[in-house]
Each structure stands twice: as structure tokens, then as C-alpha cells.
Amino acid sequence: MSSSEIDRQWTTRLRRRVEGKLPPEKLLPDTQPNYVSSWIYVFGVATMSALFVVIATGCILALRGPQWWHGSAYGHFINSLHLWSVEIFFFSMVVHLWGKFAMAAWRGGRTLTWMTGVITFLASVATAFTGYVSQSNFDSQWISTQAKDGINATGAGAYFNVLNLGQMLMWHIVLLPLAAVVLTALHIVLVRIKGVVPPFEENPVVENAEVTQ
């Protein structure tokens, strides 16, 4: 195979593109700028860590099923871990979100980084809501009968039936977590490609500014 043929292969082109955009030293850097030393990023990492625990405990719940998580001490424990890791996930995510909003973290071509964060948040809210109606207890029955009126009022009830436990469980354990995990991974890759947003300049130079007296 000639070198020009190798150059035309999609694997070669994709590898070169990835190497150019995200070289290994950028993906796993040794150092970060001084302004990254902020608690706001600790809450970003806490969100990711909580997501890991949510997924891990969710996998255990999926293995054993509702009778186990409602009817045994170990099941209650894993069920509670799943709930409280979600609480920590949202708590940390909101603090991180507020901090990044205050920093206007979409500056410098970071729109996609910001938007992946926003959509991850929305996907996570939907995951939590479908989790409420998938508990298979009186609480989930009550929430789903209340939610159906709201969903039906939007016209989406024919496609997204909150009283359909099977459908809600599939959204909760397959589609929405998949979206949340893929978006989180994309968010982190974008942070690595674009870097963390620098602080506002103390005395920004405003080009073409009109002098008023």
C-alpha cells in the first residue's frame, strides 16, 4: 500500500485529527494554570465522582431488582447510596454551574463546553425524574399520577407515558444515563481541548471604545 493510500484512509485521517486536537500531554496534563486552584473545580470533580457512585450503585440495583432493594437490609443500603449519591451529584453540579456562570465560562470559544454542561444538567434532571417514577412503591405511584397531568398537558403523554413503568425504567436506566455519561465525557474532553477559562482581566482593553466626557 502506497503512502498516499495510507494518508487517505479514514483511520489515518481521524488519528491525525485527534492527535492534533488533543495530544496526550493536553489530555492528561502535568500542570494547570494557577487560576485553576479554585473550589469551583473541586465541585466539578465531586460531580463526576458522585456520578460514578450513582452508576455503580444503579448497576447493583439492576442486578438484584425491586424486591431486593425494598425487602432486604443490604438492598436498602444500596438503594440509599444510590439516592444520596444523586443528592451529592446535583448539589455539587449546581455549585459548579453557579461558579462557571459567574466566570462567564463560555468566553474564548468555549460555547460548546458550556452547552454540554447545560445539556448534561437537563439530561440529569430528566434521569432523576424518571428515577422517581421507577421506584416501584407508593411514592412512585403518587408522583407518576401527578406528573401525567403535566405531561399530558404538553401533548407528549402519548409518547412519554409516566404511568408506564417499563418505559420509564428503560428511560431511567438506559437512554438518559447513556446521554448523561456521554455528555459528561464530551464536556471533560472539551475542557481539555479548550483549557479552563482564564479570569476576567482587571483592566480590559476595549477596542474602538468611544471616549465620552
Binding site: 486552584s37 479554585s38 473550589w39 448539589f91 449546581v94 453557579w98 461558579g99
Partner: peptide, 13 residues
């Protein structure tokens, strides 16, 4: 959450 946010932006790292 509000208290944690204020602490996160004011507490020294």
C-alpha cells in the same frame, strides 16, 4: 447550596 457556593468562591484554596 448558596452557603457552599459563597464558601467555594471566598475560601482560600
Amino acid at each position: 447550596m448558596i452557603a457552599t457556593f459563597i464558601a467555594a468562591i471566598t475560601a482560600p484554596f
